[in-house]
Design a protein around this nucleic acid. Structure first.
Length: 489
RNA sequence: CGGGGCGUAGCGCAGCCCGGUAGCGCAUCUGCUUUGGGAGCAGAGGGUCGCAGGUUCAAAUCCUGUCGCCCCGACCA
């Protein structure tokens, strides 16, 4: 058996790339920093999207779509926002090509009067639009989400974790009061936390960002932070309270019940295909991808085994019966009856692809009215009675989902430390990495010093942790509470 | 954008130093035998050696440029 996947201990980055390649999730495109998301990878994204979309709608949001192109002038309206995104915008300057000796060239005569920006995020065009939608408090709140692609001209890219073009959803809401907007921000953070933990089986820490890590244009950025197997943190989702910054920049006002004119309060929130990278690095092992059942494109792969033609017919009929029954329970099932691959090859392949459960049925099983069922997460196998097979599958899928979460949760706990001195901090960072709780004096200077000296950043000020005051590990100045440090992706 | 590594068949690589008919393994195709953990034998197809210039009788090989990928830094979801 040819091992195609580099081990995590040997080279974690290469392992990550090998997983993506061997599981067929994505590949590099001819364009630098961009990727082709292959059917399996996209099916994963579709499942994530479907769950999130349902959760957004359950919390009262509607989908809409805003343009890919944003007038350049819009970007300059919110000062902080421009500063944050100016360095990574793709700019459209011309509208035509002309034939040339070497193929085609940009037609100089087609220069645009106002250049267009390919959206790095849609706040500006959305707030420009909302201005026309809001007059009265009766028009509020506006609760809109869009599924879209965005472009950020990154210097260094990694499949899923950071690509120049990526898929995401961005929610943009407008509210009459600050309290309502803050509540919305927190609600969506909670949606993300629930999604990450219950569907992705990815435990996260919720918190707020420090000023230096905050979204450009936000008053407060809430986030969910996950911990990867190599001890590095990954920002997995953000929810921003935008205050009235965009409302003021784009002049979005309403007449309130008290007959005065006010600016609206805003939020925005998003998760992206980066989550797929996080998913890979949370659960997968040296044998390939490992997927939580709730979002796995295929939950059960059925591998039929036969020797003679007679066997083949009987086995296939039996396997089809199993598949039909599983499908009737809403279980995503794939029956792999291809004859060009041997069962052993298929077993290995579905392990690489991370399919949570595999059922093997052969002549013996048909005869005895049984089937072999194997788990991807624990690699355990057992023979079960045909009559109890579907029930067993259902309970095993639940078990796998829970086991993946519990394992990840435990790993996070093991790799979370609390320190009181900077020496201890550096020592732990280098020895085991992970999340480190420590006191911080609240200044950007200290944060920068730690970042420069250790490459660790403050991932967040956790929402749920003890609020015991103490002394900053670096300066000894008073600190209201411990914050969460880590090296991050 | 700086430092390091790498681009040769779909994938993984050798050949390059020392220029002279482009190779190996896997995969693919055909046939037969196989099928409960990545099958065996026999035969076959597939490459403008990343791209563009240059040196040379002759370039995968030497020179210059350029593009892309990976790793490490500065930027980021």
């Amino acid at each position: 058996m040819a091992k195609k996947i580099t081990s995590r201990d040997n080279d974690y980055s290469q392992w990550y790339l090998d997983i993506i390649k061997e599981a067929g999730l994505a590949e590099h495109s001819p364009v630098r920093g961009c990727m082709v998301i292959k059917p399996t990878g996209f099916a994963l994204w579709e499942n994530m999207r479907d769950v999130l979309d349902r959760m957004f709608k359950e919390t009262g949001h509607q989908n809409a779509y805003f343009p890919l192109f944003i007038p350049k002038s819009f970007l300059s309206k919110e000062a902080q926002h421009v500063e944050g995104f100016a360095k990574e915008c793709a700019v459209i300057t011309h509208s035509r090509l002309i034939n040339s000796e070497d193929g085609v060239d940009v037609d100089p005569s087609s220069k645009l009067e106002e250049e267009l920006i390919v959206r790095p995020t849609s706040e500006t065009i959305i707030w420009d639009t909302y201005r026309n939608w809001v007059q009265s408090h009766r028009d509020l709140p506006i609760l809109i989400n869009q599924w879209a692609n965005v472009v950020r001209w990154e210097m260094r890219t990694r499949l899923f974790l950071r690509t120049m073009e990526f898929l995401w959803q961005e929610g943009h809401t407008a509210h009459a009061t600050k309290e309502e907007a803050v509540q919305e921000t927190e609600q969506m953070l909670e949606v993300y936390r629930t999604f990450a933990e219950e569907y992705m089986a990815m435990p996260v820490i919720t918190g707020v960002k420090t000023e230096s890590e905050r979204f450009a244009g936000a008053v407060e950025t809430y986030c969910i932070e996950a911990l990867m197997q190599d001890g590095k943190a990954l920002q997995a989702g953000t929810s921003h309270f935008l205050g009235q910054n965009f409302a003021k920049a784009f002049d979005v006002k309403f007449q309130d019940k008290d007959n005065t004119v006010k600016h609206v309060w805003a939020t925005s929130w998003g998760v992206s295909t980066r989550l797929i990278g996080g998913l890979i690095m949370t659960h997968s092992d040296d044998d390939g991808l490992v997927l939580p059942p709730k979002i796995a494109p295929v939950q059960v792969a059925i591998v039929p085994i036969w020797k003679s033609d007679d066997d083949q017919q009987a086995v296939l009929d039996y396997a089809k019966g199993v598949q039909k029954e599983l499908q009737s329970k809403g279980i995503r099932t794939k029956l792999d009856a291809r004859d060009q691959y041997k069962p052993g090859w298929k077993f290995a392949q579905y392990e690489v692809e991370g399919v949570p459960l595999r059922i093997a049925v052969g002549p013996r099983d048909v005869q005895n009215n049984k089937a072999e069922i194997a788990r991807r997460d624990t690699r355990s196998k057992e023979i079960v009675e045909r009559d109890s097979l579907v029930g067993k599958v259902e309970s095993l899928l639940d078990e796998i989902q829970n086991n993946l979460y519990d394992t990840a949760k435990e790993r996070m706990a093991t790799r979370t430390s609390t320190v009181s001195t900077y020496e201890e901090f550096k020592e732990i960072l280098d020895s085991k990495g992970g999340f480190i709780y420590a006191h911080w004096d609240g200044t950007a200077e200290t944060e920068t010093k730690v970042k420069e000296e250790t490459k660790a950043t403050i991932r967040c000020i956790p929402l749920h942790s003890d609020n015991e005051p103490g002394k900053c590990m670096v300066t000894g100045k008073p600190s209201a509470r411990k914050v969460l440090f880590a090296r991050a992706y």
